[in-house]
Design a protein around this nucleic acid. Structure first.
Lengths: 219, 219
DNA sequence: ACGGAACCGTACCGTACGGTACCTGATGGG
DNA sequence: CCCATCAGGTACCGTACGGTACGGTTCCGT
């Protein structure tokens, strides 16, 4: 047994089915709609089974996060030879993927749920969400950073700091605004392109003229 | 009659007292702790008064946001003559203030509340929070941007885009992480300094060497 | 001094939730 | 063929909430 999924205990197919319904309810109606009775009805199972499988309601929530995280798999294309163009494409792809993930129905619903519970459960769900949900995407970004540095295309002292800079350039306050109910961007691609442009101006090796950047960033 | 506070209807002193208690309850125990009975007890008023004053529970929440926003007043020091050093100081001060506001107990509690309600109230509270809470700080930042541009110290096509870039550099994913229960930064000042450094490299006129930036940003 | 408005405290009601218990039907191994 | 295990359905319990109603009190204008 590989320790690959040691942190995602996995559930039986039947339980996955139930968790799928739980996610659906959560997305449709928020945490108020995710009641044990409602879930049992929607998933055609008994409340008793829910409690046997997940312990209590919080257990269901935790299982939902683990289940959702287990569905996300990032394609790892690290074998490629990096050129400046390839790196740029990968960075832009990362930005687009990040914006799409953060703006997804399920992601927003789970984040809202965890944030709403933060005040009363000591941020247990929040930790879980950050751990499970962020690991994959962080790994991918850090690999990209390090690969860029190794290829002589990026320069920074601290890969983590550089990544956070990149993240901020991509997302800005958009995540919180979406969590508060605002619609996402019309064009994630343009936002990703602008973020990459700025990021490369800060940490790339190609000395791009500042004016060219400013013009494009102002569009 | 100036329409100065047309959007912040203000409340009677007694009602402000009640709203203060409501904020205290919310900060201490989250929205679960903010019950009408609990608030009436904590504020030594009757539930009937609460319903007379605020309509229903959602009215109380909306009033809390308006009340909290009415307490925030940003000092406007726009009369000053801008030099590059002064601008830098103002930008750093803005960054520090922003991080402090976002990490404040009341701000986090209100944001958690609004986010938790987003799924079931059609983001009414979220809109309110963005409108009331963001207006002041956004105005200050935009004024800073425009002033910097007028003084020939900043270059950008779109002030709003430049501001969002700055915001992202300052906050990155920190706001969401704090909403999820993580502690804030140990040193807001350093974060603000690094953000300003990067922002000036992107939109400032002084052509700072890229290497100097990278070294300092990597600390 | 009077009357009424505003307000506090409490009691009350309907509802809906989390969680438990009990019964029934299916399934699978001996 | 039988029995044990598991899961679904239903009924139930205690609790706590939002919202309302009512009696008593304070305070202010007249």
């Amino acid at each position: 047994m590989r320790p690959d999924n040691a942190d995602t205990p996995q559930f039986s197919p039947r339980q996955n089915e139930v968790l799928e319904q739980a996610l659906r309810l959560l997305v449709e109606g928020g945490d108020k709609a995710l009641t044990t009775s409602g879930l049992a009805r929607a998933a055609s199972c008994s409340k008793e089974s829910l409690y046997k499988w997940f312990g209590d309601r919080d257990g269901v929530l935790a299982a939902m996060i683990a289940y959702q995280a287990s569905k996300v798999r990032t394609a790892d294309r690290s074998g490629e030879k990096l050129t400046d163009q390839i790196l740029k494409q990968h960075l832009e792809q990362f930005g687009r993927d990040l914006l799409e993930v953060l703006g997804g129905d399920v992601s927003l619903a789970l984040n809202r749920l965890a944030i709403g519970q933060t005040s009363r459960d000591g941020s247990k769900l929040g930790k879980l969400l950050v751990e499970h949900g962020r690991r994959q995407i962080d790994r991918r970004a850090m690999a990209l950073m390090e690969a860029g540095k190794r290829a002589g295309l990026l320069r920074f002292e601290n890969a983590d700091a550089a990544y956070h800079t990149f993240y901020g350039l991509i997302v800005s306050d958009l995540h919180v605004r979406m969590l508060l109910g605002e619609p996402g961007l019309k064009d994630n691609s343009r936002q990703a392109e602008r973020a990459v442009e700025a990021f490369l101006a800060l940490h790339g090796v190609e000395q791009k003229t500042a004016d060219a950047l400013r013009v494009s960033a102002g569009r």
